[in-house]
Nucleic acid binder design. Structure first.
Length: 427
RNA sequence: GUGGGCGCAGCUCCGUUGGUUAGAGCGCCAGGUUGUGGCCCUGGAGGUCGGGGGUUCAAGUCCCCUCGCUCACCCCA
């Protein structure tokens, strides 16, 4: 039982979840704004989908036997018994929305969303984490793959990240993958004894996933395993060749990684991941995605190709910390209003200044001028606006710059202009 | 699920071989300045030392259990 509950201690955020508060939240704001602007610049529109879905949305799309769905998904019976789940990732939700609304193709969306996985938290891994991402449905043009990967690459660049690597692979499609998987199985069966304990008896279950097992035994055993890119059918080979050529033409370096298969069943053809070289922890994957040309069908809809990626906000910010880039640079307040005469002036003046487009906070209660000036200083405001008995009698206001400059007396009708000038001067 | 590390004030932490009333810095509040922030000085608030049990004349300190945080494995953002 909970020791906390019995001792009546104050509640805490659940394990693996966390609060994002000022000033860290300022970086979140800026990160999301950066991503939103970038996505919009490429014709992607915001999509907001529910955090809770029928469990089948993820079971059918991601795969029952995948790690994420099989043992990490938050799944439970709704009050009426319906199996529901908190989304473990974004793509399946977006494809569900596509099937429900059938927008005109191609359909390009971006999102920022929480995702949930019940696993033991550690550095860079949470039970509720957050992602920004895009999904583009309705075209299998390799240039769409290039566009999507470019967006992620560009985003990291905009944040100031430099130490990251892009790895790509193609895992083929329904025509060529089964043959490859069969060959891989034969290969692995021949050396089952040298695989790690966990995979030794499970070659048949999913031989592909065995490729990215990080245990030394498996890595050694699969060193010269057959490679997917050498078994692609003509169409897939041409497609992947164009993706690689397109990336190269845009100056995006990508390393071909034969072991890259990704953890979700729905991927076909292009898969990719971004790994930060600046994060010491092993959780250095900052983004990943791929093409999922059969997902819409698997979920019961018409065949619709698609591709997308998800980027982990928490991990990207960890990488930014490590590279000392993308600092929080919140826009300061223009003014902090201090009213020593009872509060009526502050009430009306703050509303007036805010309507004029200025960012204004104020003191509440009846604290001393000294105390309120201290609060004004801590608020980071560019100036304090003081109204006391002297100002009331003279019909003026005192403006005191807090970052250098002379205090002066101004008329109320020239206050906004004066504050704007102060803002411009500080830029 | 399996391991390691750590739990003392809001935060970062001292606390001797167990020994009076548990401390510091920062932060917060107030005063020094009857209307002036930052620097300085003084004072104050704030702790069942995570919780429970045990050993002992005596436990923040030793032992057991438990809860929590954290790092790592698996996997992933």
């Amino acid at each position: 039982m909970s020791g906390r509950a019995s001792t009546g201690a104050a509640p805490r955020a659940l394990r693996g979840t966390h609060d994002v508060l000022w000033p860290e939240s300022a970086r979140w704001e800026a990160l999301v704004a950066t991503f939103a602007t970038l996505a919009a610049s490429a014709g992607y529109r915001l999509a907001v989908t529910p955090v809770i879905e029928a469990a089948s949305v993820f079971r059918r799309g991601i795969g029952d036997d995948s790690e994420v769905v099989g043992k990490e998904m938050y799944e439970f019976a709704d009050r009426d018994g319906t199996p529901v789940a908190l989304r473990p990732e974004g793509t399946a939700s977006i494809v569900r929305a596509y099937l429900q609304h059938r927008p005109v193709l191609p359909w390009k969306v971006w999102y920022v969303m929480p995702a949930f996985r019940h696993e033991r938290p550690q550095a860079g891994r949470y039970r509720q984490h957050h992602q920004v991402g895009v999904e583009a449905l309705g075209s299998d043009d390799p240039d769409l793959d290039v566009e999507v990967i470019w967006l992620a690459h560009r985003f990291f660049g905009l944040l100031g990240l430099a130490e990251f690597e892009l790895v790509v692979n193609s895992i083929g499609d329904a025509r060529c993958r089964p043959g490859y998987v069969a060959e891989l199985s034969r290969f692995l069966a021949g050396r089952a004894e040298s695989l790690c304990a966990e995979h030794r008896g499970r070659i048949e279950a999913n031989p592909l996933r065995l490729l990215d097992c990080k245990r030394p035994e498996c890595i050694a055993a699969t060193e010269d395993a057959p490679r997917m890119v050498e078994h692609l059918c003509e169409d897939c080979a041409v497609h992947f060749g164009r993706v690689q050529a397109g990336l190269s033409a845009l100056g995006i370096g990508a390393r071909l990684e034969h072991r890259l298969v990704r953890g979700f069943d729905y991927y076909t053809r292009t898969t990719f991941e971004f790994a930060s070289g600046a994060i010491a922890a092993s959780q250095n994957g900052i983004g990943g995605g791929g093409r999922y040309d059969r997902l819409a069908e698997a979920m019961g809809g018409p065949a619709t190709p698609g591709i997308g990626f998800g980027i982990g906000i928490e991990r990207v910010l960890l990488a930014c910390d490590a590279e000392r880039c993308f600092p929080a640079a919140p826009e300061p307040l223009d003014a902090y209003v201090i009213d020593l005469t009872g509060g009526e002036v502050a009430r009306e003046l703050t509303a007036e200044l805010r309507r004029a487009g200025l960012a204004v906070d104020r003191g509440f209660g009846h604290r001393s001028l000294k105390a309120q000036l201290g609060a004004a200083d801590r608020s980071g405001a560019r100036a304090a606006v003081i109204v006391g008995d002297q100002e009331l009698a003279a019909g003026t206001l005192t403006v005191r710059p807090l970052r250098g400059g002379e205090q002066r007396s101004v008329r109320r009708d020239e206050l906004a202009g004066w504050l704007r000038a102060l803002r411009e001067a500080s830029r």
